[in-house]
Structure formats: structure tokens, C-alpha cells
Design a binder for these strands. Structure first.
Length: 530
RNA sequence: GCGCCAGUAGCUCAACCGGACAGAGCACCGGCCUUCUAAGCCGGGGGUUCGGGGUUCGAGUCCCCGCUGGCGUACCA
């Protein structure tokens, strides 16, 4: 049992079973190493003065047994605890014993989660919003896995429908040296697509735009897959919409809605009564022209996810799909799958160069692609920048800053800490630290501060998983790097007394494990040298 | 009009599911390299957390009303 649990255990009888006892690290050192507000919460319910109860709690903590230095009541009724160095030494041992597995937990309880992200249309290259979604989605998957969820990552390929035919029409036009139709795709990539598809083929034959569209879409999927691979974003499955149509799944989804009485006819169209299940208004699911709208295949897809045994589906959607959320939730609710779907809206990305926003136009095909972005700033910088901000807030991506290899660029701050760690461990002539090293020489403030934050790795991951906010790891790692740099500046590892040297070496090793594993959760490399 | 997201230092953002004096980075000023990489460290100035109410022992955080900005509001995907 860890320290927090043992502290909690000692207070439980005094505050009762229904008060949550949380231990936080206070902002100020004079408030101790750990602090709880349990007395204030419990006092309110029991009608006793908070400080009085806090005094009782403080007395109930077996300070000597837990090797605590001090227990104190402060402020309106906080109980503050000062932890002895031996405890922090044991944390370093634990990290060294567990290695890269350190920080893993069972917080997710093995719950099956399917995370769908990027899911860009196969009509062209990936843009910067897809880039952001890719970084966030992939890191979220890694974080969820580390926190004990069973996770599968999925890319939904919209390989059916009118956009594919439009792509086909555009390719055919380009092959014949003409401009694509007004509502077609005007990007330069279509010209190259045409060249490849029509290699050894006569462009003047009357081609089927559906067939050419499918071919072109497959090419695009392969390119998307290749660039995502370079971006270190991996999917367990690329799920094709056409698969659903082959199984008649959209029609069956419609039948299920009909059986629930959620379908009616009006004005020659077929409607889903979403307003009865939480949507703002009812929606057309089959047009008066007899065409199903996208809601049906998408609903079928989500039913498919549920049928595969997933308990939760997390969708990362672009800002243009805002409106879609309510109707999908309503449709799932109608079929008994409320609380199945969680939607994260990945907000817009604005590229900034020379202090001004880079203008992008989808119609003219003038978009900065993921491939170009990686070319310009590299994978580590791109992923790190996208993971700095909350998913739900718009992001300014400063290309000049991203290209800059200087201290202004925050990526290097964290990577540099890891580099310094490897630098120390490369040195010869000092005792090689290991999981059995005697750590009793550790006790300097910079050492303790570092360990204190290393210990928070697991709870940070668990919380990032629970809130679906992988960017929490970024702030955490910057904090670790900061503590390490301070330690590095204040103390030498090599060339001091052997016992101190070995103990500090063990701490450095432990910090390296956490930094590398943390960066790995972000999909960012931890370099040996810079 | 309605919905979603946001409004915190000059700029970009934090603040651990309400906690003790709101913190970092950048920018600006000043220090620290004979020794494990100075892409680092130390110090300095900087704030009515958009405004107004409410709940609470306690609110940047929760609720209500405004204001400002972004996005979305199709028998398109």
C-alpha cells in the first residue's frame, strides 16, 4: 500500500465513509509535502469547527510508523504532512524495479474502448486539423492503454458516396487535360493521381467515374497511411464504409429505428424523430429522392463498434462536425446505446508564419498538408506542438517558432533534460546504479523535489486517461524536466563520493525512465544527444 | 435566433474533478560555463482571472444574466 492510501486509511474512521479523502501537493513548501482538505468537508456535514476536526485527524496519523517528519494543521483546516526522505528513496527504488512499466495502472479496469480519429475523406492529402487529431488521438490511445484500458484505434474510411464519384470525375478531367468540375477537387495532387491511374491507359475512353473514384480513393488511403506512419500514428483497423453497405448495415439500422417507432414519413422523405431523444430537431434519413443521408451509415458504424464488444466509443471530430453530435447521440439513445459515445471536438488549427496566419483555401486545393508540415518542422516538434493545448480550444501553430532550434522552442526543453541524463549515464568511472543501490544519501532539496514529481507519473496518466486529455502529460513532463535541470545545476553525479555518486546515478536513471516513457506516450523521441 | 467552444501578465498558455498569497514560457533588464552538453540555472518588474449577481467556511473553477471572439446551424459527407 502506498503512502497516500495508508494516510487515508488512518483518517477514514474519523471522517466517515462518504467523504472523499484526497491528498494533493500544496503550492507552497511551507504547506508540507502532502495536504488534505478532508476535515473541512467532513466538518460541514457534522457541524463541528473544521480546525477542531483537523486537529483530531492530525493526531490520528501514525507519524512515526509512516516515517513522517511532521504533521500540522494549517489555514482554515488543512492537514499538512511532511514526508521523510526514506519514503522518497523508496520511490526511486520502485521506478528502477518497474522500469518502462512504471506509471502503468489499472485505472481503466480493462474497459474496452474504441477510439476513432482522423477519419479524413479519401479525396486528398491530410490537412493540419487531421494532423492535430492524429497527434491527440494517437497519444490518447497510448495513455489509455497505459492506464489499463483495452483500446483499439480506428480510422473510418468514407469510401462510398458522392464524394468518391466527384473525385473520379476530377481525375478523369485531369487525365484529359481539363479542369475538374466546379464542385470537384482542384488540388495539384489530383493531377498526379491522374497520371498514375492512367499510366498505360487511354484517357479518351469513356471511364466510369465511380470506378476511377474508387481507384483514386485507394491511392489516397495508401498515401494517408504512409504519412501517418511517418508521423508515428498507428491504427489497429482501417474500417471502410463500403463494408457496411455490403452487409446492408445502414438499411438494418433504419429498420431498428423504425421498430422503436422513431421513424416517420413526411413530405416524401423519411425522418428520424431525434427531438424525442435529445436532438434539437428531427432529421431526414432518406431523402425524397430515395437517397439515404450520412446519418444511417454512420449510425450503422457505431452500432458495429458496440456489437464488437466495446463499452465506450470515443470519436475525435473536426470542428465542422459540431452539428452532427446531437443527432448521432439521439440515434444511439433511441437504440438503447446512450452513454456509449463520447465526442471530442478537435478545434481549428491556424498556421502562423512571419506573425501572420497562413491563408488556406480548400476549394482551390491550397492547403498545407501533414506531409509538408512534417517536412518543415519534423515529427517530434509537430506532435509536441499539437499536444500543448487542450483539444477543445483553437490552436495557433507558429511555424517560425517550430522551426527554430533554440531555447525558445519548448520541445527541446524536455528532450534536452533527457539528453543530459544520457550524458551522465554515458560517463565512466562511477558506480553503476541499479535497483538495489543504497539511496540513503538522497535528501537534498533538489533531489526530493524531483522525486516528488516523478512519483506523480501514474496518477497523471490515469487522470489524462480519465479526462481524455493527453496534453496533461506535456505540462507534467515540462515540470519533470524543470526539476531535473535544477538538480543538474545544483549537484554533480560524477566525481563525488562513491556512495553519493551511485545514489544520484540511480535518481538520474529513474528520471530518465519517466522522461523517456512520458515522451513515448506523446509519440516524441527521447534523444541520446542533441 | 439557437447550439458548442473560449475569454487569466504585453504575447502564448497553466492552475491537479471548489481550497491556503493565481503560476510558467516568451519578450524586457541583470547575473552564472577550468569539471556530467549554457537548447540550462539564478534574480527583477509585471494581474480588478471580460462585467454583474448567486451558492459556499472558501470561486479563475459551480449556477444565472449580460458582453466579446471563434466555429457550427442542409432532404451535403
Amino acid at each position: 500500500m502506498n503512502l497516500k492510501d495508508r494516510l487515508t486509511q488512518s483518517l477514514r474512521p474519523l471522517v466517515g465513509p462518504d467523504v472523499e479523502i484526497r491528498w494533493t501537493i500544496p503550492k507552497h513548501k511551507r504547506q508540507g509535502d502532502l495536504s488534505t482538505n478532508a476535515a473541512m468537508i467532513a466538518a460541514g456535514r457534522r457541524g463541528v469547527p473544521p480546525r477542531e476536526l483537523a486537529q483530531e485527524l492530525a493526531r490520528a496519523i501514525p507519524a512515526r510508523e509512516l516515517a513522517l517528519e511532521k504533521v500540522e494543521v494549517a489555514g482554515p483546516g488543512f492537514v499538512n504532512v511532511w514526508v521523510g526522505a526514506e519514503y522518497y528513496q523508496s520511490v526511486v527504488h520502485e521506478i528502477l524495479r518497474e522500469g518502462p512499466a512504471y506509471g502503468a495502472s489499472a485505472a481503466g479496469g480493462g474497459r474496452s474502448v474504441i477510439v476513432e480519429f482522423v477519419s479524413a475523406n479519401p479525396t486528398g492529402p491530410l490537412n493540419v486539423v487531421s494532423a492535430r487529431a492524429g497527434a491527440i488521438g494517437d497519444s490518447l490511445v497510448r495513455v489509455l492503454r497505459k492506464a489499463g484500458y483495452r483500446v483499439s484505434a480506428e480510422f473510418y474510411v468514407n469510401d462510398s458516396g458522392r464524394q468518391v464519384r466527384r473525385l473520379g470525375e476530377s481525375v478523369i478531367a485531369r487525365a484529359r487535360g481539363k479542369q475538374p468540375p466546379e464542385d470537384g477537387y482542384h488540388g495539384g495532387d489530383v493531377i498526379e493521381l491522374a497520371r498514375r491511374i492512367y499510366a498505360g491507359r487511354d484517357p479518351s475512353e469513356a471511364d466510369d467515374s465511380d470506378e476511377i473514384g474508387r481507384l483514386a480513393a485507394e491511392h489516397n488511403v495508401e498515401r494517408q497511411r504512409a504519412v501517418l506512419d511517418r508521423y508515428r500514428v498507428a491504427f489497429d483497423r482501417w474500417f471502410r464504409e463500403s463494408e457496411l453497405h455490403e452487409q446492408d448495415a445502414p438499411a438494418r439500422a433504419l429498420e431498428q429505428l423504425r421498430e422503436r417507432g422513431a421513424i416517420y414519413e413526411k413530405d416524401g422523405a423519411t425522418w428520424f424523430a431525434g427531438s424525442r431523444f435529445g436532438d434539437d430537431e428531427d432529421r431526414v434519413v432518406v431523402t425524397s429522392g430515395g437517397r439515404p443521408t450520412y446519418l444511417l451509415p454512420d449510425l450503422a458504424y457505431h452500432l458495429n463498434k458496440a456489437a464488437r464488444g466495446n463499452k465506450t466509443a470515443i470519436d475525435l471530430l473536426g470542428p465542422d462536425h459540431h452539428d452532427y453530435v446531437n443527432r448521432m447521440q439521439a440515434a444511439l439513445t433511441a437504440l438503447g446505446h446512450d452513454r456509449f459515445l463520447e465526442v471530442l471536438i478537435v478545434q481549428q488549427v491556424h498556421l502562423v508564419r512571419g506573425g501572420e496566419r497562413v491563408k488556406m483555401s480548400k476549394r482551390a486545393g491550397k492547403l498545407v498538408t501533414l506531409g509538408e508540415l512534417l517536412e518543415e518542422v519534423g515529427v517530434d516538434v509537430a506532435r509536441y506542438f499539437f499536444l500543448q493545448r487542450k483539444t477543445s480550444t483553437p490552436l495557433e501553430f507558429d511555424l517560425d517558432l517550430a522551426r527554430e532550434q533554440s531555447d525558445r522552442n519548448p520541445v527541446y526543453y524536455v528532450q534536452y533534460a533527457h539528453t543530459r541524463i544520457r550524458g551522465i549515464l554515458r560517463q565512466e568511472g562511477f558506480p553503476s546504479p541499479n535497483a538495489d543501490s543504497d539511496l540513503s544519501p538522497l535528501g537534498q532539496p533538489e533531489e526530493i523535489e524531483l522525486i516528488k514529481h516523478l512519483e506523480r507519473f501514474g496518477e497523471t496518466i490515469a487522470r489524462a486517461a480519465d479526462t481524455r486529455e493527453p496534453q496533461r502529460l506535456v505540462g507534467y513532463l515540462e515540470e519533470i524536466a524543470n526539476r531535473f535541470h535544477k538538480f543538474y545545476t545544483a549537484h554533480r553525479v560524477v566525481g563525488v563520493e562513491p556512495d553519493v555518486s551511485e545514489a544520484r546515478g540511480a535518481l538520474v536513471l529513474a528520471a530518465g525512465i519517466v522522461l523517456k516513457e512520458g515522451l513515448n506516450l506523446l509519440g516524441v523521441h527521447a534523444p541520446e544527444r542533441m
